[in-house]
Simulated assay, not measured.
Amino acid sequence: MNRLQVAVIDYGMGNLRSVANALKAVAPDLHIEITSDAQQIAAAERVVFPGQGAMPDCIRELDTRGLRQAVIDATRDKPFLGICIGLQMLFEHSEEGDVPGLAIYPGEVKRFPAEKMLDAHGGKLKVPHMGWSQVQQSGAHALWQDIPDLARFYYVHSYYVAPTDSALTAATTAYPFDYTCAIAQDNVFAVQFHPEKSAESGLQLLRNFVNWKP
């Protein structure tokens, strides 16, 4: 069998098939698989770490399947894309369930504070943040190629990452305050939004990922 070129990590959480299908749409010639096999993940050329759900459940399921080390190793040595909770799990601690994350990067995962969730007219904003929001890029990056600044991406989340190191931030979005919605360091790029649900801008980001040579 041809070498696995993109592994989509399956730890029992989230709609993985929509991510895999979007990847196959932008890269039909690549060998892309959803997998919960740590050896397959280790052998893959690129790794996508998606997910939906609560942080405590995601961490537990990751450990139950013996995939914690596979994820950590993948962040060290190959192009790695985290999506939604696949971004949040990279940090030290989450307020959701008061649980530790994988601690690859210093920082907290915080709940949107109720007292700040007001629009410009004083009206209450809903949590979770659900729908389309603009993404303000923090600087040039290969994964932003051919994506205009302030393009809209699709979100569904009640928590956001607050990195200790501001240099990690690759983009911000406002709801209603600015928060980090994408991080980048070396071979790792991770986003709070769902590129697989974000129309052409999302597909372009995935296209950029499968061609990325960090």
Rank of each mutant, 00 (worst) to 15 (best):
L205M: 14
P148N: 04
A25F: 14
I32N: 13
A167L: 10
E108A: 00
P163R: 03
L81S: 08
V99C: 02
S201V: 04
Y11K: 09
S36F: 07
D73I: 00
S18A: 14
V188N: 06
P163Q: 07
Y105N: 03
M13I: 11
L23Q: 04
A151I: 06
W144N: 13
H31W: 08
S36N: 13
A167Y: 00
G53H: 08
R152V: 05
P214L: 01
T75N: 02
F153N: 06
I104V: 14
F153E: 11
A184C: 07
R65Y: 13
P113Q: 05
G86K: 02
G51I: 02
D77W: 11
A25P: 03
S36G: 15
C58S: 10
D119C: 03
V48E: 02
P113E: 05
I183Q: 01
A74V: 03
I104L: 05
G202M: 06
V127Q: 07
A120N: 06
T35M: 12
A74T: 04
E33L: 12
N2Y: 01
P28S: 11
P79K: 04
V48D: 00
S198E: 05
E96T: 04
K126F: 03
E96D: 09
S138F: 05
G97T: 02
L90M: 05
F177H: 13
F189D: 03
G12M: 14
N211T: 11
V161P: 10
I41Y: 12
H141D: 15
V135R: 12
P214E: 05
Q204W: 06
Q185G: 01
D29H: 10
P148Q: 13
I9Y: 13
A22T: 13
G97S: 04
D98T: 02
A114D: 12
S94W: 00
L4C: 03
A140K: 11
L62T: 08
A114Y: 08
P56C: 10
Q192K: 05
V71A: 06
I9S: 09
E95V: 01
L118H: 09
P214W: 01
E200C: 07
S158T: 10
A142I: 13
K124H: 07
S158N: 12
E115A: 07
W212S: 12
E200N: 08
A25R: 15
D57R: 14
P128C: 05
H93Y: 06
Y11V: 13
F91K: 00
L205K: 08
R60Q: 15
S201N: 15
A42F: 04
L67I: 11
K110F: 00
F49P: 01
M130T: 14
L81F: 09
Y159I: 12
M89V: 07
K126G: 11
L87P: 04
G122W: 08
H129W: 03
A140L: 07
R68V: 04
E95R: 00
R207T: 07
I147R: 04
N187F: 00
K197C: 10
Y154S: 11
H194T: 12
M117S: 05
D149P: 09
H93K: 03
R207I: 01
P28T: 08
A22C: 13
D149M: 09
V156H: 11
M13R: 10
T164G: 03
